[in-house]
Design a protein around this nucleic acid. Structure first.
Length: 320
DNA sequence: AACGCTACCAACCGCAACGGT
DNA sequence: AACCGTTGCGGTTGGTAGCGT
């Protein structure tokens, strides 16, 4: 695949276009069409490379370009299409008459992406963020619990059972401790997270007798934290798993059709698409007033709601 | 007024795909 | 099949406007 020398040629102007250059380009294309972009600058009397001319035309000067703010409908369309197509800006732009891929890309990066992050949604997967910050409340609770355990406070056995069940619930419904996404806000490494978790899981010996789970290891039924965890909002029965896999396959095929064989949204680290529906599909209508600054102020996905309800439970406050 | 910070967006860069020879 | 030229695309950069201190 050869590469065109294009703009590295000496003497060609770069940078912002002047009004005069715009007028020359528009005049030439209106009269003669763009033809070969490479030949165009010379013919149009422009000291630019063809690539620059093409970009200026397609992104700015084309008469059918719609400028101005994106409407709610356009915003919704972009979110929907991005959840299916990923960063296929040109494919998304083809569904938005008058909008260029560059404009949509910029709008995504400056507005929509931030909104989704604010709402606790991973902008790449359109699913609840599963990074260290969304796990932080759980980890803090675990840390406090371990502190209490280390102090060997004389708990009632029933209370211990309840608390440990609570802990087990947390660990069986974890926000995944490691995120595959390109999440800029993840400052803890996966291994650091694992260290924290594993240190918390080194239980004091006196708890083994009250677990009733496994005498040798009270946490033996907890998920293997070295393995990326699926969301566990639904039953973990084998039947459901098989059903989810079948649904995932069906959806993967659907996505393959929609995205012409390319689907950047899928990740081997993520649960099947059918297990956790894309939250942007249900939260899109709230985006317009997503002015909140905290993940916890907005309508959170169900996988979080369960945990938040747990945190509000008086029983859980006793743990803290 | 000066400075720093942030948001926005036009434009650039480099790679990939495609078609012609 | 290999090479070359052209175009398309997505990621990134840099200029600048707006705002707060």
């Amino acid at each position: 695949m050869g590469r065109s020398p294009c703009c590295d040629e000496n003497g060609l102007k770069k940078g912002p276009w002047t009004l005069e250059e715009d007028q020359k380009l528009v005049k030439y294309i209106k009269e003669s069409g763009h033809g070969s972009w490479r030949a165009l600058p010379k013919l149009a009397g422009l000291n630019r490379c063809g690539k620059s001319c093409r970009l200026r035309w397609t992104n700015y000067l084309r008469p059918d370009i719609k400028r101005g703010k994106f409407s709610q409908e356009e915003e919704q369309t972009i979110l929907n299409l991005h959840s299916i197509l990923g960063n296929k800006w040109s494919a998304i732009a083809s569904h938005l008459p008058g909008r260029t891929d560059n404009e949509i890309k910029n709008f995504w990066n400056t507005h929509l992406r931030k909104k989704l992050i604010q709402m606790g949604i991973d902008p790449m997967t359109h699913r609840p963020r599963i990074d260290i910050f969304s796990s932080l409340p759980h980890l803090i609770a675990l840390a406090n619990l371990k502190e209490l355990m280390d102090q060997q406070q004389p708990w009632e056995e029933a209370a211990q059972m309840a608390k440990l069940q609570c802990l087990q619930y947390l660990l069986q419904n974890p926000p995944s401790l490691s995120s595959p996404s390109n999440n800029m806000h993840t400052t803890f490494t996966d291994m650091e997270t694992m260290d924290i978790s594993n240190s918390l899981l080194s239980s004091p010996p006196q708890l083994a007798s009250v677990q009733g789970l496994d005498d040798s290891n009270p946490f033996s039924r907890l998920p293997d934290l070295q393995i990326p965890c699926d969301y566990r909002i639904s039953s973990s029965s084998k039947d459901d798993t098989a059903q989810a896999q079948a649904q995932a396959q069906a959806q993967a095929q659907e996505h393959a059709v929609l995205s012409q064989g390319e689907n950047t949204c899928n990740s081997t680290w993520l649960p099947s698409s059918s297990a956790v529906p894309s939250v942007t599909e249900t939260l899109i209508s709230n985006l317009g007033d997503a002015s909140c600054s905290s993940n916890f102020d907005v309508a959170a996905p169900s996988v979080w709601l369960d945990d938040h309800q747990l945190f509000q439970d008086p029983l859980f406050h006793n743990l803290l």
